[in-house]
Structure formats: structure tokens, C-alpha cells
């Protein structure tokens, strides 16, 4: 490994930012994939995997991917909830890999709700 310059310190810090954000619980947007038995059976794990690999590929640092239990609407799994820090959570249903990538790019990163996939905004209030 090469010798460090002072500038390298900042570079290493930037490169490790995603890891440190995870440890500090810092995020701009959080994508929560529901992983009840129903979610897993419907393919929630491929949704998580697609998300993480996209985050790696694009070197995105401020999106947190978490999982939680069943959201209660088992027939519409896989589902995910996207929450921009401080904003109302939005639930998405019937997800596919392509859909979640679109949600990641448009909603989590750019802040625009992907209405055609959204099930509800806020808590337990259906818009579809």
C-alpha cells in the first residue's frame, strides 16, 4: 500500500462514508423492505439484493436499506416503504427489481414519489 498524503485522509474518509453512515444511523432516505414470510416468498430478498448492488454500483452513500416484518397486505408483496428523512413514509407494492431501482433513483435519491407504484402515503391510508 502506498504512503498517505494529507489529501488521502479525506479521500479515505469519503470512501468509507457509506459504512460510517450505517454505523451512525445517518441517512437521507431509508428504504424498508418488508420481509415477513409472505414478503420472502414473493421475492423480497431479490428486491433487497437488487437495491444493495445498485447502491454499490453507483456508490450511493446516503440511502439506508433496512428490513422489517410483514406490512399486513400479504397479497401485494413484495412491498417496501420509502422515507425521506423528516417526510411521510410512502408504501410501494407488487415490486420487481426494475421497479425498486426506479423507486431508488426517483424517490429516494431525487425526492419524487413514483406514483404509479405507490400504494399509500403516510400511515395506512390508501390512495390507489
Amino acid at each position: 500500500m502506498g504512503k498517505l498524503s494529507i489529501e488521502d485522509l479525506a479521500k479515505i474518509k469519503e470512501e468509507s462514508k457509506r459504512k460510517m453512515n450505517l454505523r451512525d444511523g445517518e441517512y437521507k432516505a431509508k428504504i424498508n423492505v418488508h420481509m415477513g414470510t409472505c414478503g420472502i416468498a414473493a421475492g423480497a430478498r431479490t428486491i433487497v439484493d437488487a437495491l444493495l448492488r445498485e447502491i454499490e454500483k453507483k456508490d450511493i452513500k446516503e440511502i439506508m436499506v433496512t428490513t422489517s416484518g410483514c406490512a399486513g397486505l400479504c397479497s401485494r408483496e413484495p412491498m417496501a416503504t420509502v422515507e425521506i428523512k423528516g417526510g411521510a413514509p410512502v408504501k410501494y407494492a407488487d415490486l420487481t427489481e426494475a421497479k425498486i431501482i426506479k423507486i431508488l433513483n426517483e424517490h429516494a435519491l431525487a425526492g419524487k414519489v413514483v406514483k404509479e407504484y405507490a400504494l399509500a402515503v403516510g400511515s395506512e391510508k390508501t390512495t390507489a
Binding site: L22, E56, D59
Partner: peptide
């Protein structure tokens, strides 16, 4: 490319 994880277990 740094790997992305959703959970880190700090043991």
C-alpha cells in the same frame, strides 16, 4: 468498489 450492506453487526 466498496460493498454495500444493510446491516452491520458490531461485535
Amino acid at each position: 468498489m466498496a460493498k454495500a450492506y444493510r446491516i452491520e453487526v458490531m461485535a
